[in-house]
Amino acid sequence: MSEFIIFSLLNTLIYGLLLFMLSSGLTLIFGLMNVLNFAHASFYMLGAYFAYQVSIHVGFIPALFLAPLGVGILGMIVERYGLRKVHAHGHVAELLFTFGLFFLFNELVILIWGRNPVDYQIPDFLDFPLFTLFGADFSAYKGFMLLISIAMFIGMYLVINRTRIGLVIQASLTHPEMVNVLGHNVPAVFMYVFGAGAALAGLAGVIGGNFLVTEPGMAMALGPIVFVVIVVGGMGSLTGAFISSLFLAGLQTFAVGMDYSLADFLGHFGIQASSEGFWGDIVRIEIANTRAMIPFLFMIFMLIFRPKGLMGVREE
């Protein structure tokens, strides 16, 4: 049992930090601009594809820097020439625009790289077991992912809390009009934040794309989960996103180990549930099987009962 717990904790940490890398940008963009960017997960996908393309030609390490940079620039272009224009049509239009982008990016990726997964592999120099615990390997690449995630987290903390632009961002989160009045160029801040958020998602793609699979469906698969993270954490809150990333990762990781169904529960009370028909289906479901549903249940309850999330900065 202890090995299950230790490995599950490590897996939680890796998956959680990956989620945070994705959700931090999204939550910042929401906090600043009040825009829920549906295309955010597309930046994650583009990061993986850019990294694949760059790593074929010049290797993995340059890709680690170039791919997020490329995605970041793309993000800035999207904000400057797309979102800013659509902003005039209102919030629903903004939502629809980012949703359309999500759709379009997917099709463009298929157009360029095809529908099959591309052969984006873990670099050879990181492809060995780092240590072995209870007979199971912990791969070096997982260690590398942890390292990058933690470095990113520290870097982001320093930027937000120790730099001038970080202070402007913090102020814009709470008092956007005031910041504008003080003479800061808020639209430019928006553009940079949008670009930086996209770049972070791109970075998650670079280190996640080869660990998982780089294929056109990857944005669709991760997109909804990232929304759940920022809703549960509180839209606009970085700390909230951090906590809820780890929380949701843990929830999904540990749920795997629970083979416990309603029928088992009723069994404790001596109730023999029927195994036929609709109720038979329901009592048969094990907790582990609901793994895909748990996050959405959380999100719905959160939105109903505590819409500002765990650490929300503002409500309504």
Partner: peptide, 21 residues
Amino acid sequence: DDFHPIGKIKDFSPYITKIQS
């Protein structure tokens, strides 16, 4: 005898840990 949500799992490590043990 495990069942996992179809097409939703990105990281199978938790299952691998369970299989391992």
